[in-house]
Amino acid sequence: MGIGQKLTKPFYDLFVLIWDTNIAVVNLILPQLEPGHVVPADAPGHGGKWPEYVPPRDGDSRSACPMLNALANHGVLPHDGKNITFRELNTVVRQSFNFAPSFCFFVPKFAADFLGRSYWSDKFDLADLSKHNAIEHDASLTRHDVAQAPDQGVPDQELVDELLNRATGKASDGTPLLTKRDLSLQLSKRRVEAKQSNSAYTESLFHNMFGSANSSTMLTIFGGRVNDLRPMLSEERFSGDWEPRVLSRFGLTMAAFNFTVLPVERGVDTKALEVQG
């Protein structure tokens, strides 16, 4: 991050905080979106109708984030995952997943900053977002650590199955749901395992919170539904007729998101597992 970016960052952060809080309040007042109309009518995925899924080809760029990879696999982002503008990412993520505008500005802006690029004018490849200890971090729920698995664009099926098989909740139709407790337990297990197996393992409060935030999208955007999460995490594709589970008029704010993220992180208990081990 350049000197100019460092000087302006506090102002951007304050602006986003105020913006996000205002959106959260408005979401409490206005009626929710109707199911089937969460993705805008002029955007890919409206009514659950996503463009055709095409697995990544040799030379395509993919990240450590299954949701972004799915957007590329369906051609909502460029299929090769290259030369994407940060502003394009903002728009596509907002329309596809119903994150609030404040959220969709903050995360791409954060990504641009840690890559040393301009949010307003520069481009990136999806693989760039896997820069270690920025958004990508050790003890992921769907990838082994970069020291053991350098290609973070590919999910680890064993880890995905282990996560989804942990689901203890049930939807109204009887299908399995991941819960906050399930995520906390799996995050605890992954942090202990990664620390034991990876001599280069690093951990900080920031990375732990980011890990819980990444995981919590499974509970918010996907409603914890294992039947939707399995194709997303395994093949990085949308299940048939899928749409975001967040129905807030202006999308999921960071303020609302924290009501899921903080309990998930508070539920992580690595010490108990270390004692058992």
Rank of each mutant, 00 (worst) to 15 (best):
G116F: 10
F86M: 01
E158K: 11
T179N: 00
N214E: 03
D20T: 02
Q32E: 15
A147K: 07
Q196K: 05
V160D: 02
A111I: 10
R191H: 02
P176L: 08
T21P: 10
M209G: 04
L7R: 15
N22Q: 09
D182V: 00
V192R: 02
R225E: 00
V154T: 06
V107R: 14
Y12C: 09
G251A: 05
L163D: 03
S130F: 03
G45N: 05
T202E: 11
P56G: 11
P155Q: 03
L273M: 04
A41I: 14
G75W: 07
H74W: 07
E203N: 09
T260W: 01
N69R: 03
N98M: 01
V268H: 06
S184T: 09
C65A: 13
G240R: 13
V275M: 09
E158Y: 09
D161I: 10
V92C: 02
P40S: 07
G59I: 14
V107A: 13
D156M: 00
T270V: 08
V39S: 08
Q148V: 04
K49Y: 14
N198E: 00
E52Y: 03
E34F: 13
L233M: 10
D228L: 08
G81C: 08
G81I: 08
T175C: 08
H137A: 06
R190N: 01
A41Y: 13
T270P: 03
T175S: 13
G153F: 06
N22H: 06
A256H: 07
H37K: 15
